[in-house]
């Protein structure tokens, strides 16, 4: 079996599909709506959350036996905020360009409910290695949805991917635009993300009826 036992593997793979933080647990919706208008921002956010959630889960897990339960939420918040600020400051000093790109994400990461949710639900009750895997798994699950949403919103809303035009030039009417196709301005605004996420949830539930709750 090697490095990962079967249980460990499921820690990483479950959040990708049947226990996805966005589509099943409906956590982290706010950032999924806010920053998925373009693919690049989605990817950057996915990577940042992976780092913070992986590291944060390990820190919380190591501290799990000494954290007073009355103030655990505040302690969790301090851990996330400290991690994010350390990364932000180090980048500002040594990779200024990159830090400018990430600046907008700092607030979104600190308040991301997936991070608090995993600290609370998993890291407080499990060892560091498993918590780390859980963090990576959940951030992957989050990132996958972000990237799918970002892909459709940028493609249909701006006709570009990673800022590169893929459907032709909308002003000079070349490529697909020559046939009368237009960019859908609605895809750029946040409600479109809600609709795309809704469609993903719909597809996922219709493929796997076990996910549908009985009323």
């Amino acid at each position: 079996m090697g490095l990962l036992s079967k249980k460990d593997t499921s820690l990483i793979l479950d959040p990708l599909a049947d226990n996805n933080p966005i589509t099943i647990q409906v956590l982290g919706i706010c950032s999924a709506l806010a920053i998925t208008a373009e693919l690049k921002a989605s990817v950057v956010m996915a990577i940042s959350v992976m780092f913070v959630l992986g590291a944060g889960n390990v820190v919380i897990s190591l501290m799990r036996n000494i954290i007073p339960s009355k103030i655990r939420i505040i302690v969790q918040l301090i851990v996330v905020a400290t991690l994010v600020i350390i990364v932000d400051q180090v980048l500002k000093a040594f990779a200024y360009e990159l830090s400018k790109t990430l600046a907008v994400f700092v607030g979104l990461i600190i308040t991301n409910c997936i991070i608090m949710g995993r600290f609370e639900a998993f890291a407080l009750a499990n060892g560091p290695w498993r918590s780390f895997l859980d963090g990576i798994g959940n951030s992957l699950g989050y990132g996958v949805i972000l990237i799918i949403v970002g892909f459709f919103r940028e493609l249909l809303g701006s006709g570009t991917l990673f800022g590169i035009p893929v459907l032709g030039d909308p002003i000079a009417k070349t490529g697909l635009y020559a046939t009368g196709y237009e960019n859908n301005g609605f895809m750029i605004i946040p409600p479109a993300a809600l609709i795309v996420v809704g469609i993903i949830i719909w597809v996922q539930r219709s493929r796997n009826p076990a996910l549908v709750e009985e009323n």
């Binding site: 920053i35 208008a37 373009e38 921002a41 600046a103 907008v104 607030g107 940028e154 750029i188």
Partner: peptide, 10 residues
């Protein structure tokens, strides 16, 4: 800008 929405205000 400091924190405008990526893809929109940014």
């Amino acid at each position: 800008h400091k924190g405008e929405t990526p893809g929109l205000g940014a």
